[in-house]
Design a binder for these strands. Structure first.
Lengths: 184, 184
DNA sequence: TTCAGGCGTTGATGATCTTTAACATGATGC
DNA sequence: GCATCATGTTAAAGATCATCAACGCCTGAA
């Protein structure tokens, strides 16, 4: 409850996957304003802060009620509203957490549109990956094995084995997947 | 959630029975600042607003989460924290509601210190009054009647009858009283 | 009545904030 | 390498805020 306004804003902005300039544009202020607020080099007016939060969007009460994680504490929980949707159209996914450079595990909440194909060239990289189909149907090819998976079905394999994903159904396919190390 | 900062501050301040100057003194700002904020003639910085609220005291999250009553709606509920203690020493009381000029009924949550006497000259005024003893003991004189009341005991009489209250015990006496019309 | 004290409000001034416009850095593509 | 783009930061200038001081109003006491 006593973290600085700057620290709060930076946390909120980064959790929503916005740059200072992007948030500034949405809020109708300048990027310098965001920068100064976040570095606590200025003490924004309530009106300014409200305008900035409108760009997120988030209310003032929610903003000040936010529980700030301990300094250096690891972020553990990721509310759905804070899982930023990346990509549009054929494939989109929500990544659990940001700054994958420091993590060993990457979790994605993916959506494959009908007809989506991860590529004719089979993928291959270090690590392991797996996932569970939530809804829809997906053709998964791993090495010599090929299988069509439906809701509740899952997969897990060594990523060095060439692999490929295709949504051969006529509806979106939702998958929760994981891989280690992060591949993005 | 969308009431102005000024309206919120004015409501909070008045609910706590503070004048602009008194709040300003406690908060370490000038009375002009309070006045300007409450009239929405300025847009305080978050830091300023925080300092002001510290003088109440109240947190920013609580402040912005406050539900503002409808315009013109009557105030019905009075949380204990908002019942302002008036008076010190022998008698103190918390009045339910402010601005008694418009009301027909006055409710007080009173505390009489040991030995307290409402006065040798018996009181007399228009209206009716009554109350219930919560704790302690109180000698109540109404007209020719005199009685010592304890927890759970109550009284009710026409205020034109001369009356007097004395705490003859050795502990505080807590009373919830009501009178109509308001006598303060 | 007159005086004193408290109340909320208002103008002018110094302090602070928001903007403008630049800078430095790092990622991406030719 | 070089140009290009996006990011976060920073200095100076204009806009806004907090303060000081004064004002009018009201209430209560002498």
């Amino acid at each position: 409850m006593d973290a600085s306004v700057g620290a709060r804003l930076r946390m909120v902005r980064e959790r929503h996957g916005l740059s200072q300039r992007e948030l500034a544009r949405r809020a109708g202020v300048t990027n310098a304003t965001i920068s100064l607020i976040e570095s606590d080099r200025t003490n924004p007016s309530v009106g300014s802060l409200k305008r900035v939060l409108d760009g997120i969007p988030m209310g003032l009460a929610e903003f000040f009620a936010l529980e700030m994680p301990e300094e250096g504490a690891e972020r553990v929980f990721f509310p759905a509203a804070e899982l930023v949707e990346i990509g549009r159209g054929k494939i989109s996914y929500r990544q659990v957490g940001t700054d994958m450079t420091r993590r060993a595990l990457q979790i994605l909440h993916e959506r494959y549109a009908p007809g989506t194909d991860s590529g004719k060239v089979l993928l291959s990289h270090e690590g392991e990956e797996g996932g569970v189909i939530i809804s829809g149907r997906m053709e998964v090819t791993v090495g010599e094995q090929r299988r069509i998976l439906g809701p509740g079905d899952a997969y897990l394999f060594d990523s060095r084995i060439p692999h490929r994903f295709r949504n051969i159904g006529d509806e979106d396919c939702i998958v929760v997947s994981a891989c280690t190390p992060p591949s993005l």
